[in-house]
Design a protein around this nucleic acid. Structure first.
Lengths: 133, 133
DNA sequence: TTCTCTCTACGACTTCTTTCGTAGACAAGT
DNA sequence: ACTTGTCTACGAAAGAAGTCGTAGAGAGAA
């Protein structure tokens, strides 16, 4: 149960992971086409990236058919968690609260979402032995 | 308002900015010594970085005395805001709520901090009906 | 079979970032 | 005046990330 992967995906690798998370196992061709929706990218560029990510164990691949099928080998949540930790340290010097305040304050959030957060707050309070009001 | 500097500091530049934000205007020597507390860094490395940051207008400098005195030219908040925006998009596909939930859920937050957030939530709710500016 | 299309592999090039060596200026101290 | 220490400027090396050209294999159509 030890470290699954202290590996930090780069900017582009993350974009590819997003595609794999959203669409499930995909061929290079498919990933490339998705990437092109946002930004023109050569086919071999995508291929190379996926190969590197495979080496880094960020993705796994099925080589059965001629076109290999790639799949994310890390979950979206664990990756987000990991990146969030780093971001928190480097940008907010570790203060989760400052980050949350800024995120809530400057990005529109629907009333419903605010409610969900309220629920979470309540839950956190209940779990915490020494909560004062 | 239309400032032309949505420049994104690099990892190391951010570290230096943190030092300047925390300690105010500083000489290269001082910044370098602060950096060394975390990681051994050559003096000229720090110098070069500050010079580059000066070119990029991330810092300003006072050249009066022989040892120049550098000062952050961007505020901590605006930088955090900018980086947060990027991070939100690339890592959480724009969902501020998901980010907040994860931040609150997985990083220790004191009861007092939870309270501050609660206050913010209330404030957001009050302001929200017709927000558009 | 032969031609054509698509795929993987691989290596080289570019750009960006970080690191550092070296040179010249300048102020003190002796 | 000379030596020493600290400073800036500059250029170049080292590293990291992303980009792409080219070669060769295989599959299917003609």
């Amino acid at each position: 149960m030890e470290n699954t992967s202290p590996l930090k995906p780069t900017e582009t690798e993350l974009e590819i992971l997003q595609i794999l998370w959203q669409h499930g196992p995909s061929t290079v061709r498919f990933v490339n086409e998705e990437q092109n929706k946002a930004k023109e990218t050569g086919y071999t560029t995508t291929l190379k990236l996926l190969q590197i990510m495979h080496e880094k164990q960020l993705v796994s691949r099925d080589e059965e058919s001629r076109s290999h099928v790639y799949q994310a080998a890390v979950t979206e949540e664990e990756t987000q968690q990991h990146l969030l930790g780093r971001f928190l340290d480097t940008t907010f010097r570790g203060s989760a609260m400052k980050l949350v305040m800024q995120a809530l304050g400057n990005h529109r959030t629907t009333p419903d979402e605010l409610n969900q957060i309220r629920h979470l707050l309540k839950k956190l309070e209940d779990d915490s032995p020494n909560a004062d009001s």
